[in-house]
């Protein structure tokens, strides 16, 4: 697929998402169901990957769709795609919950034995994603694969772990300035690579 075709498909996809949001703003439940079909898998996978807990991931995805429904009318397409908005909501809420859970876990860890299985999640099945979502995932993975491993690791930790800059630096045992530079270069290159599809 050429960049032009990819760009055209991405535009069509974003346009369709924006239409669904406008219809949702008009109270159309069918539009909501259609948007759910388009977004639910990547959003659920993201929440599950961050939280490692199926029940909590379901709560997050549920709340995100409620927010999309309630705020569909104030969505501004010029500020970014609907998918980007939904992912941002999902990630932020998952990380908020993850940090809250870590604080609770730190308290609980002082008294609870590790064999209670509090950290164990119920992994979803996830083998039945749609062809479009699978195709987009392949493209993103291919783009990330072109990044140097240190940039890839820094980006993945920054996106999924809920760690602060300093915590990422400590986890990767690198100076904070190095981590910032890796994130800047990695994200910039990813944006350039995915530009036709964004």
């Amino acid at each position: 697929m050429t960049d032009a075709e990819a760009s055209r498909q991405a535009e069509e996809r974003s346009s369709e998402d924006a239409k669904l949001l406008r219809r949702m703003a008009g109270g159309e439940h069918d539009a909501m169901a259609a948007l759910y079909e388009r977004f639910s898998r990547p959003l659920y996978a993201t929440a599950l990957h961050i939280l490692k807990d199926g029940a909590e991931a379901q709560d997050i995805v549920h709340d995100v769709f409620i927010t999309l429904w309630e705020k569909a009318a104030i969505y501004a397409a010029e500020r970014g795609s609907a998918f980007s908005w939904a992912v941002t909501l999902t990630r932020n809420r998952s990380i908020d919950r993850l940090r809250s859970r870590r604080r609770r876990a730190e308290l609980l860890e002082q008294s609870a034995p590790g064999d209670l299985g509090l950290q164990e999640g119920n992994a979803g099945t996830g083998a039945d994603e749609t062809a479009t979502a699978a195709d987009q995932a392949r493209v993103v993975r291919a783009a990330v694969a072109t990044l140097p491993p240190d940039q890839k690791d820094a980006l993945e930790l920054a996106f999924f772990s809920g760690l602060t800059q300093q915590e990422i630096a400590e986890r990767l045992r690198e100076p904070l300035g190095t981590i910032k530079a890796r994130i800047r270069r990695g994200l910039g290159k990813l944006r350039d690579t995915l530009a036709p599809r964004l």
Binding site: A45, G80, S81, V87, G126, Q136, L155, L194
Partner: peptide, 11 residues
Amino acid sequence: AEIAHLAPPAE
């Protein structure tokens, strides 16, 4: 936001 696609697929 596209980094979300790096999460293992889940239904």
